[in-house]
Computed example of a mutant assay.
Amino acid sequence: MSVLPLVFTSGWASGINAYAVVLLLGLMGRAGITDEVPLSLQRTDVLVIAAALFLCEAVADKIPYVDSAWDAVHTLIRPVAGGVVAALLAGQNGSLSDLAAGVIGGSTALASHLVKAGTRLAVNTSPEPASNIVVSLAEDLGVAAIITFALFHPVAAAIIAGVLLVLGITVVLLLLSRIRRALRRRKERRERRRTGGDPAPPGAGGYGGAHRGR
């Protein structure tokens, strides 16, 4: 059986939460649920590190603006992780070259990561924090569900991942104006912190203004 559908799905999921993908695949392989997972992902040290980083992401991903900062840091990490996982899966199966699998998994992870990061910027424009928690939980559950499904029904899972990717890109394009406003506000806040606040206009209030008014 071709490993391409699983490579694509794991790439998409890695762009959302790479640590969850590594952890889930490793645990399922370790438990003997599937033989599609390479031994390198089942190692105890890999599972412990993935679990610790997953917990960190589970917290950071639910805090407004902290989630966007976390996404920015992972702009390189998630595509690389997606590429590595894809190459390992291809090496385990042997039906697709490691290089081709790495390119497919990495590029798919980058695309889904950009969708996630753009969506989070739009969500952060909301004045309440509950939306961040809801979106984060939906992402975590979605990644767990599609990775589990992909191990048993890889083609169907790849189709679902493809549809979700297209829908995500469409949503981000529709929310571009909202995202631009969020970025502009963040830039203004950084500028205010750098300058120590907005300077008062010349002659506004204070002794100097009263003196000139005489």
Rank of each mutant, 00 (worst) to 15 (best):
A100C: 03
R184P: 00
I179H: 01
A150D: 05
I77K: 00
Y65V: 15
A158G: 11
G142C: 05
S68I: 09
A81E: 01
V84N: 00
A90F: 06
G118L: 05
V115W: 02
R178K: 13
A87F: 08
G106Q: 03
R181F: 03
W70K: 11
R180D: 14
V134Q: 08
I147A: 04
A156P: 02
D98W: 09
G118P: 13
L173H: 08
V103A: 14
G105L: 08
F152N: 14
G102T: 01
L89R: 09
V171Q: 05
L141M: 11
S112G: 06
L110R: 11
I179Y: 02
I77D: 00
G118E: 08
V84M: 07
P154R: 04
A87G: 13
A145C: 04
H113P: 05
D98P: 13
I146H: 01
L165M: 13
L114S: 05
R178N: 10
V143D: 00
L151Q: 05
T75W: 04
L89Y: 09
R78C: 07
V84S: 01
V171N: 03
A87T: 13
L175A: 14
N124I: 05
I146F: 02
A157R: 10
R120N: 14
T170H: 13
E128T: 15
R184C: 06
A58S: 15
L137W: 11
V143F: 00
A90N: 12
I159E: 01
A101N: 09
T125G: 14
E139G: 07
L173A: 14
V103I: 15
R178L: 12
L89A: 10
V166D: 04
E128M: 12
S131W: 08
I77Q: 00
V166H: 04
A90C: 09
S95P: 02
V66F: 12
A58M: 12
N132L: 09
A130C: 06
H113I: 10
I133V: 15
V123F: 11
V155I: 11
A51F: 13
A51L: 15
A145M: 07
G94M: 06
K62E: 05
A156M: 13
A145D: 02
D98F: 10
I133F: 11
S136F: 08
A52F: 14
A122T: 12
P79N: 06
L99G: 08
S136M: 03
A50P: 01
Q92N: 14
L174N: 12
A86Q: 06
L88A: 11
P79M: 06
L89G: 10
P79A: 11
T125Q: 15
T119Q: 06
E128C: 04
G102E: 01
G142L: 04
S95F: 03
A100M: 08
L121Q: 15
V103G: 02
A157Q: 07
V103H: 03
G106L: 05
L151F: 05
S97M: 02
P129S: 10
P127A: 10
